[in-house]
């Protein structure tokens, strides 16, 4: 878990904090005042410059899935303070305040739904909940999602965002990286497709596990995507970071991503990909 997204000066926090109040909000990229209702209709994209504001997990599900097709799985799972973490503030109180803030028990929503005509197992990470850090609940819910998708022969789509592993759960949180990756190994062996969608920011432990194990890896524009935080890298290496370092476009150029997709086209792109992955399409091609 890295602190870089907490820095007051960074646009990341600025984005988040400016959105909730008032009818209008200022675009951190072009400084245009954006009417919030309009922005909501535009899926959180600035009409003037195309800047992607972070959007909530519920909004994301609404945007991607067919109306009323979502069936949530494992919503009741709750984190426990297994380490009895003794830090500056207790883990239990952190969990409580984040539950209150988001109305959810932890940092990921999982379930089944339809994207176009495709039934999928979908997970959406909720950055508002403790920076969508991965503890035992996130790891377990994602693992169950993948296992169930394997059993029911469903494609998996995971909309990723994360500050990394959840420090308060110590080594348990690290082990979720292995757990989720193991489930993906079985899903892959069953010949089923997996598409992670990397949104701003996807980093550290999530990045070094299920976020980068896709058959096709999709990212939103201008998202911060990386293993180590930029500040850690700067401090360790004493080097200046290149322009656009760890941004989607940088990673596309360096060969990690299959595509960077504007949020407006995300759903249609996923449908197109799922069409290509459909088993009977291969059958049809052979038959004709």
């Amino acid at each position: 878990m890295f602190p870089f997204f907490r820095k007051k000066s960074s646009t990341l926090t600025a984005r988040k904090r400016d959105v909730p109040d008032g009818l209008w909000t200022k675009c951190p990229s072009c400084s245009e005042l954006v009417y919030r209702k309009q922005m909501h209709r535009d899926h959180g994209i600035c009409a003037k410059c195309g800047f992607h504001f972070p959007i909530g997990a519920a909004e994301r599900i609404e945007m991607l899935l067919e109306n009323k097709s979502f069936e949530e799985w494992d919503a009741g799972l709750e984190s426990v303070d297994s380490l009895e973490f003794t830090g500056t503030s207790s883990y239990v109180s952190k969990l409580e305040s984040n539950m209150k803030k988001t109305g959810r028990k932890d940092a990921v929503i999982c379930g089944r739904g339809r994207i176009g005509e495709h039934a999928v197992a979908l997970a959406v990470m909720d950055f508002d909940f403790l920076a969508a850090s991965m503890g035992a609940v996130v790891g377990e819910k994602i693992t169950r999602l993948i296992e169930r998708a394997t059993a029911e022969r469903l494609p998996v789509v995971i909309v990723c965002a994360s500050g990394g592993a959840r420090m308060y759960e110590g080594l348990f949180s690290l082990m979720q990286m292995a757990k989720t990756s193991g489930a993906l190994a079985r899903h892959a062996a069953a010949g089923l497709p997996y598409i992670p969608v990397l949104t701003h920011p996807t980093t550290a432990g999530v990045m070094a596990s299920f976020a980068t194990l896709g058959d096709v890896i999709v990212a939103e524009p201008d998202a911060l995507i990386g293993f180590a935080g930029p500040r850690v890298i700067k401090e360790t290496t004493q080097q200046d970071l290149p322009d656009g370092f760890q941004k989607s476009e940088f990673l596309l150029k360096h060969g990690l991503l299959d595509m960077v997709v504007n949020r407006k086209e995300l759903k249609s792109t996923l449908i197109q990909l799922l069409d290509y992955f459909r088993p009977h399409r291969q059958g049809e091609a052979k038959a004709s």
């Binding site: 990756s181 890298i233 360096h254 990690l256």
Partner: peptide, 18 residues
């Protein structure tokens, strides 16, 4: 944690190993 590590995708290398 370095520039080259990120450019050659350290996260993906670890994930694939896992």
């Amino acid at each position: 944690p370095g520039i080259e590590s990120e450019e050659r995708h350290i996260a993906e290398a670890i994930a694939v190993n896992l």
